[in-house]
């Protein structure tokens, strides 16, 4: 049983480490790193499902074979791309959050939000607007 399953267990461990980082860490960039680790664990799991012992890459050639399954590889190609797209969006958000709040730590962000007079507040004048193109850059970049 161990011989047949050790790969899966190792990959599950990788997934769980990633998930742990996502939930426990407060730093937004670190969260995204954890998310990547989590996803990579899943990607490797898919690929290992399509592996056949003594097989070769599914590029058909004379005298080659048996071949590993091409389908999981195709799925994971797509999933990797989705993963990097999500990472790019998350990082762009992190940059903007840092510029308007001056921090990327979740605990500090909550504190900053609490400090405001109106926590569920409106688009009032005292709030910093969500300005997109760096006309004003609040926040304490050192």
């Amino acid at each position: 049983m161990i011989a047949g399953l050790y790969v899966y267990w190792a990959l599950f461990a990788v997934m769980l480490i990633g998930l742990y980082v996502v939930i426990s860490h407060g730093n937004l960039v670190k969260k995204l790193l954890g998310l990547t680790v989590f996803q990579v664990g899943v990607f490797l799991f898919f690929i290992s499902v399509g592996k056949v012992a003594g097989g070769s890459a599914p590029i058909i050639a004379e005298g080659a074979g048996p071949y590993s399954h091409p389908l999981p590889q195709v799925l994971i190609l797509t999933a990797i791309v989705v993963g990097v797209a999500t990472l790019a969006v998350g990082l762009a958000l992190a940059v903007r959050i840092f510029e308007s709040y001056g921090t990327v730590e979740e605990d500090e962000l909550e504190r900053v939000a609490d400090e405001q007079p109106e926590p569920n507040g409106a688009f009032g004048a005292q709030c910093v607007p969500n300005a997109p193109f760096g006309s004003e850059r609040g926040g304490g970049r050192s």
């Binding site: 959050i97 709040y101 939000a113 507040g121």
Partner: peptide
């Protein structure tokens, strides 16, 4: 794209939770 900077936090939270859900 929401008008207030809290929109960024809401979006980020959704990115993380949503992606974990998708995974």
């Amino acid at each position: 794209m929401g008008q207030h900077r809290r929109a960024l936090l809401a979006a980020f939270r959704y990115v993380v939770i949503g992606t974990v859900g998708a995974v």
